[in-house]
């Protein structure tokens, strides 16, 4: 029971954090001639959820975050919302996969993979939505953009985990590998 409460609080904090980051990110313009490039900091929340709990919880965090952010931003159920959902869904899946089944990646690699798949998913959804193949011309830029954003997020997470401090992590489970993933 105590454990569940801790988890609930932790996940709720993650959702709040992710939503805040998501909304703030949307306001920061990245000087690139391509629409839709974001810092991907919101991915931090998803990664943390994955790190301490399982895929299901991470998906919950990711999707709730997108939903809340879209409600706040006023694009709930709009095409942009669908893109965000596709991206969040895909990136959570790939990150879970890598965390579970590989040992050779640190949080940086996992976050880079997540960012890449996030961008690919968005691109795919956008091209489906617009029924236009022309959007594929954004592919290289989006792939490239995933690198710095993914590395930044991964670094942040690494240092966050190492410092093992802050109000957020106070709620993290003590024994990290107890019920990790899948």
């Amino acid at each position: 029971m105590r454990h569940d409460t801790r988890k609930l609080v932790f996940l709720s904090l993650l959702v709040a954090m992710g939503t805040a980051l998501h909304v703030v990110e949307g306001m920061i313009a990245i000087p690139l001639p391509v629409p839709g490039v974001k810092l991907g900091l919101a991915n931090l929340a998803t990664l943390l959820a994955l790190r301490f709990y399982c895929l299901r919880d991470a998906l919950t965090v990711a999707l709730l975050r997108v939903m809340l952010a879209s409600l706040i931003g006023g694009f709930f159920l709009s095409p942009g919302f669908l893109l965000a959902v596709t991206g969040a869904f895909g990136s959570t899946l790939i990150m879970a996969l890598l965390l579970e089944h590989t040992r050779c990646f640190s949080m940086i690699g996992i976050s880079v993979a997540g960012a890449t798949v996030h961008n690919l998913g968005q691109l795919l959804a956008a091209s489906l939505l617009l029924q236009s193949g022309a959007i594929v011309y954004y592919l290289p830029v989006l792939l490239l953009a995933a690198l710095p954003t993914g590395i930044c997020t991964g670094h942040l997470l690494n240092s966050l985990l190492q410092s093992n401090s802050g109000a957020l992590l106070a709620f993290a489970p003590r024994r990290e590998h107890d019920n990790l993933l899948l």
Partner: peptide, 8 residues
Amino acid sequence: SRVLSIVA
């Protein structure tokens, strides 16, 4: 989570 991953 197994069901979930299949759905995913």
